[in-house]
Design a protein around this nucleic acid. Sequence first.
DNA 1: CACTTGACCTGTCCGC
DNA 2: TGCGGACAGGTCAAGT
Length: 291
Amino acid sequence: MPELPEVETVRMGLAKFLPGRVIASVDFDWPKSFPNAPNDVKKFAVGSKVVEVRRRAKVLLIELSSKYSLVIHLKMTGQLVFASSKERFGAGHPNDSLVGQLPDKSTRVTLTFKDGSKLFFNDQRKFGWMRLLPTAEIVNLDFFKKVGPEPLSDDFDWRQFRGRLLRRKNTSIKATLLDQTVIAGVGNIYADEALWGARLHPATLVRDVSPAKFHKLYDELIYVLRLSIEKGGSSDRNYVNAEGKKGSYISFARVFRREGQACPRCGRTIEKIRVAGRGTHICTHCQKTVN
DNA sequence: CACTTGACCTGTCCGC
DNA sequence: TGCGGACAGGTCAAGT
């Protein structure tokens, strides 16, 4: 699921609900979802207060007053759903969405706050994880040292974008967009959408992309990321925000999961191919192979 | 070093 | 209706 717009949407929701709440207990059943929970939760999470909720790339950071942070990756099917104490757990979530009764069979971790409200970490495929780490040490993690710049940050422009991508000259443009060490936060949906916008075939090698095309691709990427945040993200399958609600970007998508339908630009049929080992949606008329 | 494949999991969909 | 296989928004490790 979650690419930058989805994780950012979850972050905004959590930032509204969590700060100031004190953790009373943490329940977990699937050990891999929260490997260091048994050792550290009682010492560094229970009794501490949520200070701030941040995001870097596709990772969420819930900063606690104990100087520890919950570090969370949702991977493919992770959800973080908050429910206040007034809502009836197990009696139907108030929002009409993919999320019904909570906890459900995909709930891996439940945080209960002092006021009775709860945060559920659901993850059908169990790829996602949650860790509890000293806040000061997070910047030293391999992932944070290697991850590329945030595409939506103020000081990021198309020249920087081009410079980063050119580190992978002999790789396909799609694989390079998906590489988190090149640019943070881009996944399969927005890579396909941006490439369609720039009329670039996903298999084009980075070295064959002209400066003008890089500029166009940058503009298209920023456009789809911002639009998706505005629409609350893409709920193709599992994704819901912190209130359990779906996002609507998928109905604005031009090619993603639209194989067999008409290209909104030229009317020809959208095809699904495989590039960089991923399902890839293209209009072969608009997006010509370059080499 | 660069690139591809397999692994991690569950659930759904499609063809026989 | 059942069953097997492919596939799903992400990332690692291992292999070529």
